[in-house]
Design a protein around this nucleic acid. Structure first.
Lengths: 234, 234
DNA sequence: TGCTCCGGGGTGGTCCGACCACTGTGCTGG
DNA sequence: CCAGCACAGTGGTCGGACCACCCCGGAGCA
C-alpha cells in the first residue's frame, strides 16, 4: 500500500508547516510549550533540517512559533496580538483602492469599538485617554502628535474589551499606514479638525454614551476615508 | 563609518524579509513582477542562499511572493485575498474566549457587509444568493449544507463591494472554524432556526432594506456567538 | 552552608556545496 | 512551417559544518 511513504503533495516544507499547525490545532501542543529540536523535528518528518527550518521560520513570522536562540522553539501564547501582527503587513503593502477599503473596515471596527468602550470604560482608562488627548494638544511636533494619536485610539480599543478587535485595529493603524495617509492630509489644514474630533470622542466616552461615541468615531475615520477616496477618484 | 557593513540588527533572514517588503512598499517592485534569482538576491544582500530562502518562504506563506518551480519568484497580485489568506490561520488556532471575540468581530463586519449588500446587490447576484439558499434547504447532508452556507455568505460579502472585507470574512468563516463551532451546535436542534435566519437575510436583500439586512445578519451570527459564550461561561 | 563564577553541552543561526525536479526556450529535424 | 527534443536556468531538497548563544551544573570561594 501507499499510506506511509507515498503522499508527496506539495513541497515538503509546506507539509511540515501543515503538520505543526495541525499539532497545535488539535491540542497536541499547548501555548508556551517547547517543541523538539529542529534536528529532531526534521528526523520525525523525514525531511532535511533546511526544509524544516524554512517551515519553522514561516510559522515564526506568522507569530505561531517563537524561536529562542540557544534555548529552543516554543509555541507562542497564541493570543490575538501575536497572530495578527502580520495584519500590519497588509496595510503596509496595500495601495490605491485597497487603502480605501482598509479604511472602511477600520471605520466600521473603530466606531463599534468606541461605542463598546463608552459603555465599559473605567475611570482609570478614561484618565489615560485624557492624558493622551492633552499631550496631543500640547505639542506641535507631528511625530509626537502621531504617537499620542495612536495611543489614544489604542487605549479606547483596549477599553472595548475585545483583544482580537484591538489587535486588528492596531494593525490597521500601524505606523507606516498612518504616516502615509497623514502626509499630505494634515498639510491641507485639517489638523484642528482632528483635534475637535478627538475631543468629541472623548466627550462621548466621558458621558458613557455609546451612540454618540459610535458617531464621533465613524466621522473621525470617515473624514480621512473620504479625503483619500476623493484623492484617488478622478 | 559604519553605514555599509556594520548594522547587524536581528537575524539576517529577518533583515532580508524587511528589505524585500520595503522594496515592494516603496514601489520598486510591482505586482506580478519577477524577482532576481534566489542566488542573486542572496549575493545582493550578502547572505547565504539558505537564509535568503527562509525569508522568501516566509513571504511566500504570507502571500506576498509567489515561487514557481523552474521559473522564478514573482510578486503576488497583492490583492486582499492573497494577503489575508493567513487570517484563516488565526481562526484555526484560536480557542476559548478568543473564539468568542472572533465571532464578535465577524458579527460586526458581517452585519455591515450585509447592509451594504442590501443597497448594492444586483439581480444576478441576488439570484446566486437564492440558488445557494434553495440548495441549502433541499438537502440534509451536513457537508453540503455547510458548503452552501459558506457560499451564501460569500456571495453577500462580494455584493458589498469591499474585497478586503470579503477576504477577512472569508478567513473568519474558514472551513475548520465553522466546522468546529457547528459540531455540537446543530445537534441541539438549532438547525431550522438557521434556515429561518437565512431566509430573513434574503428577504432583506431582496427588499433592498439595509437596516433589516443588518439586523438579520447580526442576529444570525449573534445566535452562534451567544451559544458559544454560554458554553464557555460557567 | 551559601554564593559566585565559569565551563561545557545543547540549541538555534548561518553558511556552503551538491544534486534533483521542473520550466522555458531555442534549435533541430522532419 | 511546425512538432519534438535537448539544454540551460530556476526553485526545491539535502547533508554537513561551523558559529553564537543560553542554560545548567559543578568547582571554588567566602
Amino acid at each position: 500500500m501507499d499510506d506511509e511513504t507515498a503522499p508527496q503533495k506539495g513541497t515538503v516544507t509546506q507539509r511540515a508547516i501543515e503538520r505543526i499547525k495541525a499539532m497545535i490545532a488539535e491540542g497536541g501542543l499547548e501555548p508556551g510549550q517547547r517543541l523538539p529540536t529542529e534536528r529532531d523535528l526534521a528526523a520525525q518528518l523525514g525531511i532535511s533540517r533546511s526544509s524544516m527550518r524554512e517551515g519553522i521560520r514561516a510559522l515564526t513570522v506568522m507569530g505561531v512559533l517563537e524561536a529562542r536562540h540557544g534555548s529552543g522553539i516554543y509555541v507562542s501564547r497564541l493570543e490575538a496580538g501575536d497572530l495578527l501582527e502580520t495584519f500590519g503587513v497588509v496595510a503596509d503593502l496595500s495601495r490605491g483602492p485597497r487603502l480605501v477599503e482598509l479604511l472602511e473596515v477600520r471605520r466600521i471596527l473603530e466606531s463599534t469599538a468606541t461605542a463598546l468602550a463608552a459603555a465599559r470604560i473605567t475611570v482609570d482608562q478614561l484618565a489615560e485617554v485624557e492624558r493622551h488627548l492633552a499631550a496631543m494638544n500640547a505639542t506641535d511636533d507631528p511625530e509626537e502628535i502621531l504617537a499620542h494619536d495612536l495611543a489614544f485610539h489604542r487605549e479606547i480599543a483596549a477599553a472595548a474589551g475585545n483583544e482580537t478587535m484591538a489587535a486588528i485595529l492596531e494593525g490597521l493603524s500601524s505606523r507606516t499606514f498612518r504616516a502615509r495617509v497623514w502626509r499630505g492630509f494634515q498639510e491641507e489644514g485639517a489638523f484642528a479638525r482632528t483635534r475637535r474630533e478627538h475631543a468629541a470622542i472623548h466627550r462621548a466616552l466621558a458621558a458613557h454614551d455609546p451612540e454618540a461615541a459610535r458617531a464621533a468615531a465613524a466621522a473621525h475615520v470617515g473624514e480621512v476615508e473620504e479625503w483619500l477616496r476623493a484623492r484617488l477618484g478622478p
